[in-house]
Amino acid sequence: MKILIVEDEKELAQDMEKYLSGENYVCEVAADFKQASEKISIYDYDCILLDLMLPNGSGLDLLELLKQQKKQDGVIIISAKNSIEDKVKGLQIGADDYLAKPFHLSELSARIHSLIRRKQFTGSNIIQQNEITIDLLGKTVKVNNLEINLTKKELDLLLFFIGNKNRVLSKGALAEHLSGDIADMFDNHDFIYAHIKNLKKKLTDAGYGNYIKTIYGTGYKWEV
C-alpha cells in the first residue's frame, strides 16, 4: 500500500512515516506544493495525507488537481487550521476524511485503515483477524463462527486496535477515538479501562486469544 504524506513540517512527516511504515505501508513524503503535485500526477497512491497550508500553494488546489486528473486516490486532510469552512470545502472537492492537528498517530493510522478498507470494498466488507471476523455492514462480530454481542463503543475499540496492530495506544488516544473532540476537555480517561475489560472478557469468553495487553502506565496494545 502506498501512502503520500504531503506535509511541510519535516518532523511531523517523519513521525507519520515511521509510525505507518510498520504496517505494510510504503510512505513517500512531499514537503511543498510543487513536489506534491508532481508525485500526484505521476503515481497513484492508496492514500494521500494532505496538509492544507503548504509552501507555494494550498492543499485544496492539490485536491482540485486530483479531481481534474480523475484520480481515485483516497485523501485525508490533516490541517492545523481546523476551520469548518476548510473541512466542508475539502470534503466537497473530494477528500475522504479530515483530521485536525494535533492528532494521535494511532488515530491517523485507524483512519487510513478505514479509508483503504472502504476504497477496496467490493461487495462485502469483512475484516478477518486471526479467529475473528467482523462484518462492517451488518455490524456483527464472530469469533470462530460464534457471534458475540459488542456495544458500539466496544466495536469501535476493536476496530481501532485492529487498525493499530502491535502499537501501544495511550488511554488519551483511545478516549479521543471514542469521544472525539470532547475527550480533549478531560484529563481523566479511566472509563476506557471498563470498556476494554468488557471487550476482553467477551472475546476471551468466545475463545479468542488474549491479544489485548495492558502496558504499564501508558495504555494498551493489540499484540498479534
Partner: peptide, 26 residues
C-alpha cells in the same frame, strides 16, 4: 498547533519503544 502536533506524534512514537522501563513510562 504545529509544535503541539509534533510533540504529540513524538509521544506516540516514544510509546512504541519496547525498552521503556516502568519509571520512564510513568
Amino acid at each position: 498547533q504545529t509544535p503541539l502536533a509534533v510533540l504529540k506524534s513524538k509521544m506516540d512514537l516514544l510509546l512504541q519503544n519496547k525498552n521503556i522501563t516502568n519509571e520512564q513510562s510513568e
